[in-house]
Design a protein around this nucleic acid. Structure first.
Length: 275
DNA sequence: ATGGTCGCGAGGCGA
């Protein structure tokens, strides 16, 4: 049984002691991390290597940054999604890393993804759909879909895990009416997210939890966690070949999000049975 | 209540 988790840590260095505790207790084999918020030279390679992980990173100073930790060997690392026009321009924002991990002679393609939040202060009379950050978010989704489509023919075990910054359905956010048209629950971004499901990816949390309401993120402001005012915006979207192997899928907020110095997100994971 | 709270890095931006 292999456990694969995703966790937006909101600064790898601010979270390091808590992250190491969680790794020790939760015992994931593969972890996708988002919001590292550090340059590569400041990434805690030694501490995480000592914890037993191979490491692949795509770092950026102060903002963004994604990584993959794995108990198994990491190969074929790709950093950043291609641009839609296939130009050789690289995205200045470090939001994507992908690799192939071999477990008992089976290849698993794993990606750690940090979709842009897309929210911003709006000028007078400006609508959210007109803001540059929101347009960048929608464009990032288009790039992601294009890339995932290009991998579909491989018929692999594929896991696209990370912070998608979208609550999929009404059950996935505490106040769907209040968030209608707002960031995290705007129709246009929900359509982009659903497009990933329409091309064949599966929301792995829902494989084992059809009806339950559970969140992976709670705003630091307003004591949101105590009031359970959250949203499910972190996902492991998986290929059909992976979905067939799922033995368990869940969210780990207790003992993580309720701690001092917690990230505003908590981990979510799947366990898969590799024959 | 047009705020609130973190993290980065040293003022304001991003979430």
């Amino acid at each position: 049984m292999i456990k694969i988790a995703t966790f937006n840590v909101n600064s790898i260095n601010a979270r390091l002691p808590k992250l190491l505790d969680w790794l020790k207790n939760s015992k994931p084999d593969i972890v996708c991390l988002q919001e590292l918020k550090c340059e590569e030279k400041n990434f805690p390679f030694e501490a995480l290597s000592d914890a037993g992980f191979n490491i692949a990173v795509n770092c950026q100073k102060s903002y963004n940054g994604v990584a993959i930790l794995s108990k198994y060997k990491i190969d074929d690392v790709i950093k950043n999604l291609p641009m839609l026009d296939n130009s050789n321009e690289t995205d200045p924002q470090a939001r994507y890393i992908e690799c192939v991990i071999s477990v008992n002679n089976q290849a698993i393609r794993v990606a750690s993804i940090y979709v842009p939040n897309g929210g911003s202060e709006l000028m007078a009379d400006q609508k959210i759909e007109q803001s540059e950050k929101f347009i960048y978010k929608l464009n990032f989704y288009d790039r992601l879909q294009s890339h995932i489509s290009s991998l579909a023919s491989y018929d692999e075990i594929q896991i696209f895990a990370g912070d998608y910054n979208v609550a999929c359905q009404e059950i996935d956010i505490y106040d769907p009416k209040g968030f209608e048209g707002q960031i995290l629950f705007h129709l246009q971004e929900r359509i982009k997210f659903r497009n990933l499901l329409n091309i064949g990816l599966i929301d792995s949390y829902r494989v084992a939890n059809q009806e339950s309401q559970a969140f992976t993120w709670w705003d630091y402001r307003g004591n949101s966690y105590a009031h359970n005012k959250g949203a499910r915006i972190d996902y492991l979207l998986v290929s059909p070949k992976c979905a067939d192997l799922i033995a368990e899928s869940d969210i780990e907020n207790e003992g993580v999000r309720d701690q001092e110095k917690a990230s505003d997100h908590c981990p979510t994971f799947i366990k898969i049975d590799l024959c």
